[in-house]
Design a protein around this nucleic acid. Structure first.
Lengths: 142, 142
DNA sequence: GTATCTGCAAAACATTTGCAATTCT
DNA sequence: AGAATTGCAAATGTTTTGCAGATAC
């Protein structure tokens, strides 16, 4: 048993533990999210898995991601109205999108910000924080 | 000169000062945003102005809002992937959307949160903070 | 053998674009 | 008249839905 099959088996067991039948497609999509924490769009996931799974359809990518969201394995990121991104990290953190290179990266949020949850009378279920601007690479080049 | 025409004239002068020709449609859309700070969608604006401007088209609403955004009179609010909202208040503030009644309200953000702008190496142009959950009304009823 | 999952094609929506008609000065 | 604005119809792009075939247990 090599390390690759071990990882795959672990992912498979993990999906099962969350009540998700680990089909070939689901496993590949889940693995992609774990191995590429780039907050990909459906299109990015689809294009990357196409060569490995020639019969893959975008419908399956959508179906799978919606299932993962329902089971709380993934969260949606809505930064642009034209592109929905998916994040395998469901813990509370912020995001930064570079307006030049388009990359989205994680932003650590300290407790001060999380205290903003103390909003009187509101029952907060979700907190979304994101920034737009120029990333380190793009701002030094400019 | 009554107070209504004064308001209208003020809005007209304000649009001019921002380099926007104050057409009838633009003035009505601007006034609607000022008088109804409910972060409306294009559809809400359109439906509300239809009776007053029977020939109004959604294209004009879109065109006008995009112009207002370009001239920094309005900011886009993207909370749901399916609905873009528009906010006449362009100062830094957060939003809360109630998952039950669907209303979006403003959230005052104190300086602690704004300090989060100190993100090393990033040039921040926009900060977006929003919450989802149950509002006061809906959580007491539940 | 029955449930579930996949994936094609079509539908559903929101937004933008092309362009002709209208309006304003 | 000339330039900008409006609004219809069509195009675009993303996500969902219906359904038939494939797959899994």
């Amino acid at each position: 048993m090599n390390s690759i099959s071990t990882v795959s088996e672990n992912n498979s067991l993990f999906l099962k533990s969350k009540g998700i039948k680990p089909s070939y497609q689901r496993l590949k999509i889940y693995s992609f999210l774990v191995e590429h924490k780039i907050h990909p769009t459906v299109d990015i996931i689809y294009k990357n898995l196409c060569s490995e799974i020639p019969t893959l359809s975008k419908t399956t990518v959508y179906n799978t991601l919606n299932l993962f969201i329902e089971k709380k394995l993934v969260q949606k990121l809505i930064i642009e109205e034209t592109e929905t991104r998916y994040d395998i990290n469901t813990s509370m953190h912020g995001h930064f999108k570079c307006e030049k290179c388009g990359e989205v990266c994680d932003i650590f949020l300290d407790d001060d910000i999380l205290l903003s949850k103390k909003l009187q009378g509101f029952k907060i279920n979700e907190t979304h924080i994101y920034f737009k601007g120029l990333c380190q690479k793009c701002s030094t080049k400019a």
